[in-house]
Design a protein around this nucleic acid. Sequence first.
DNA 1: GTGAAAGCGCTAACAC
DNA 2: GTGTTAGCGCTTTCAC
Lengths: 341, 341
Amino acid sequence: MTVSVTIDDVAIKAGVSIKTVSRVLNREPNVSEKTLAKVQEAIKALNYRPNNAARGLAGRRSFLVGLLYDNASVNYLAKLQTGVLTLCEETGYGLALCPATFGDDGLIDHVTMWLRQTQVDGVVITPPLSDSKALLRAIMSSNVPAVIVSSKGPGDMPAVIIDEAKAAWDMTQHLIHAGHTKIGFIKGHPDHSSSEERYRGFQDCLIHNGLEHNGEWVKQGYFDFESGVSAGQELLSLNKPPTAIFASNDDMAAGVLHVAHRLNILIPETMAVVGFDDTSLSRQIWPSLTTVQQPIRLMGTRALELLLEIIAQKGDVVVPSNTVHQMDFQLMVRESSQCSN
Amino acid sequence: MTVSVTIDDVAIKAGVSIKTVSRVLNREPNVSEKTLAKVQEAIKALNYRPNNAARGLAGRRSFLVGLLYDNASVNYLAKLQTGVLTLCEETGYGLALCPATFGDDGLIDHVTMWLRQTQVDGVVITPPLSDSKALLRAIMSSNVPAVIVSSKGPGDMPAVIIDEAKAAWDMTQHLIHAGHTKIGFIKGHPDHSSSEERYRGFQDCLIHNGLEHNGEWVKQGYFDFESGVSAGQELLSLNKPPTAIFASNDDMAAGVLHVAHRLNILIPETMAVVGFDDTSLSRQIWPSLTTVQQPIRLMGTRALELLLEIIAQKGDVVVPSNTVHQMDFQLMVRESSQCSN
DNA sequence: GTGAAAGCGCTAACAC
DNA sequence: GTGTTAGCGCTTTCAC
């Protein structure tokens, strides 16, 4: 690396002390308009970038935020990561990735070590990791600020979510409007709290509409394609199969479509299939899938925004951190649920 | 952050100077077996982790490697990223992500600024960014070690690749073995060097087998689903359509399947369709897709391995850097190309 | 083979 | 409002 511009160079050029430059860098108060301008000019003229290592060492912070995730859904994660990175770039924070495995025995040790190793200033936690109370407790007691995405957690950390139950309700209502009365449901992974939420919304809507709630039509899935195939097979081989299937995510819905094709069942003419997540898959399979769109990218950005606020406050006042930020979802109606009348 | 163990604590515990601890940390020579053991013991006993910020500041390195990418293919990137992270974890390096846009005017400035800002010790460059000679030149002149993945680049940087032409050849041969003589081809994005490579392999194989090379059967695509749909539509509406279509990647192959379904063309009975990449999509669409599997994860790990070697050598000897590391691919034969006899 | 001293580039605490 | 002085926890240089 070439010898680079330091804070001293800027201070000399601007005719002030390095402390004043530091104040400008950190947007601290107590800098007059005039000196502020002088310093900013010098920074620009020299094309100065502060050295993060030095800043971190002196200020005991790393300018790094972490993203904790379980490699479950690639599409979900890619969008979230993009959203987080957008703000990272603006704020000059770096993003440190921490892949982990939900069921793992060593999960907590792994994450704790990682927190110490990377010295991140805060973390964004994604499901299903956010559903491990033990993990959340460990993170809280390690005193690292954290924000949860797509899950409410135990309620003592800020979270960015959509109303999953409401989304599932709306989707169910969509199917009922289309004339369906016999609706099957494939649940998500039991470890994810959103699985319950989605199921609850579905159930409540059935009850609200006075529809039969047939236990045979509800199958356990695990959010992956294969479990969608299995559940689909079971549902389609029933004596009295449903005329519509609501899978708790797109991957499982794709599994149902796969089975339907193999059995020569026409979608949507003979049976409607809908999913949840609006992954790219939902547009690329045939027929294209009716699904629920979450603003995942935005949720990532919003989560980091909250996290940075907490980090900034840290040390100052008490942090009011158990707030839940709810974002809007959108029903994407496509071919797989077109009205069959 | 709680007050943590420093190198001084370790030195005291082990009864040596901090310099000796430092030597152990950096695997420097000139440490006797005995002191080495003592120090390692102290490190373990105190559960000591060196502070990266301090290491970076003193040693003018960041312990960060960068991943430059264009957000094109999510599946590809996720695998590569995982592969890179695997080694990151082992070596204690952090991964810094740099999303960029290939066609962008500001690309070079963006990346150059990012390199200065993050102060990464090296970068892994993925396609299509690796196909921009101007960008590679800028990176080289900024003196940051770099390794290219999935593209040979201009030849003056080390690269990790598969033999794409050979893979395309093998795939074409597979179709010919299955009895096809009229084979359509959908090219990849013209900016990606692998597009040419794959096309070349296809062409060469046709010639080798003395088959007709019909220009009508070759369409330009852009590696995305939509371009696969367009190209598929054109190919299927020809008076004399091909009996097999080789799409340069899975997303485009999915587009062809989509069109075929809409036109009630049976796959593979009436027409075979094959792709390239072995994305999860290839297993989830119907029928499942014959495709080429690259060891993307491994390629990521290997790329970082090479990069770290260069970083370690840096400053020492001259770096022999224009080496090409070729990995194995694998033909994944699935339903979409099953022999129709 | 090992250690002492200096300093990497910045921020914290305090003085003015 | 602004500057001065100490470090942050390491690696470097050079002495032994």
